[in-house]
Amino acid sequence: MAAVKQKIHVKKGDMVMVITGKDAGKKGKVLEVFPKKGRVVIEKVNIVKRHTKPSQSMPQGGIFEKEAPIASSNVMLYCTECNKVTRVSVKETEAGKVRVCKKCGVNLPDKK
């Protein structure tokens, strides 16, 4: 069965808040998006320990902490203007389409 690319409601660089799971309530920036798997990697959220054997590049080896992907359905966009989680509306302007906060109506930054 081939992986189907899903529409993900957040982009790389967006501020999001985790709404369910062990990290519920945490906020962070989206570092990576995996549309085929429907998952996102968020800064300082879902930290896992990676046990690494010594190698040529890492002669010491050891235990490292890194962010693991979580389902995109478990996160919601966070508006920094109204300090709330929100859904996204798309409005047409002369410059093109822009994403807008549903609660306060402010344009969401399009950071990459």
Score class of each variant (00 low, 15 high):
1 M>K: 15
1 M>L: 14
2 A>T: 12
2 A>G: 10
3 A>Y: 12
3 A>S: 14
6 Q>R: 15
6 Q>W: 07
7 K>E: 15
8 I>W: 01
8 I>H: 08
9 H>Y: 01
9 H>T: 08
10 V>Y: 01
11 K>T: 00
12 K>G: 00
14 D>C: 01
14 D>S: 03
15 M>A: 00
16 V>T: 00
17 M>C: 02
18 V>E: 01
19 I>K: 05
20 T>L: 03
20 T>W: 03
20 T>N: 07
21 G>T: 03
21 G>M: 03
21 G>H: 07
22 K>Y: 03
23 D>S: 04
25 G>S: 00
25 G>R: 04
26 K>R: 06
27 K>H: 02
28 G>D: 01
28 G>E: 01
30 V>Y: 02
31 L>Y: 06
33 V>M: 03
35 P>C: 11
35 P>R: 07
36 K>H: 14
38 G>F: 06
38 G>R: 07
39 R>H: 11
39 R>F: 10
40 V>Q: 10
40 V>R: 07
41 V>S: 08
43 E>S: 13
43 E>H: 13
43 E>Y: 11
44 K>R: 14
44 K>N: 14
45 V>G: 03
46 N>P: 02
47 I>G: 05
47 I>W: 03
48 V>S: 14
48 V>H: 14
50 R>I: 11
51 H>T: 03
53 K>W: 05
53 K>T: 07
55 S>P: 02
55 S>H: 06
56 Q>D: 11
56 Q>V: 10
56 Q>C: 03
59 P>I: 10
59 P>E: 10
61 G>L: 09
62 G>H: 05
62 G>F: 00
62 G>W: 04
63 I>D: 11
64 F>E: 04
64 F>S: 05
65 E>P: 06
66 K>V: 09
66 K>A: 11
67 E>H: 08
68 A>L: 04
68 A>D: 15
68 A>P: 04
72 S>F: 05
73 S>V: 09
73 S>L: 06
74 N>Q: 13
74 N>D: 15
74 N>I: 04
75 V>F: 04
76 M>E: 06
77 L>C: 06
77 L>A: 05
78 Y>G: 00
79 C>A: 10
79 C>M: 10
81 E>C: 06
81 E>K: 05
83 N>Y: 13
83 N>C: 09
83 N>S: 13
83 N>V: 06
84 K>S: 12
86 T>D: 13
88 V>K: 12
88 V>Q: 06
89 S>K: 15
89 S>Y: 08
89 S>H: 11
91 K>F: 12
92 E>D: 08
93 T>P: 05
95 A>H: 07
95 A>K: 14
95 A>Y: 09
96 G>P: 02
96 G>A: 12
97 K>D: 12
97 K>I: 08
99 R>K: 15
100 V>R: 12
101 C>G: 10
103 K>N: 15
103 K>Q: 11
104 C>E: 14
104 C>H: 10
105 G>V: 13
106 V>G: 01
106 V>Q: 09
106 V>Y: 03
108 L>M: 13
109 P>L: 05
110 D>K: 13
111 K>H: 01
111 K>C: 02
112 K>I: 01
112 K>E: 02
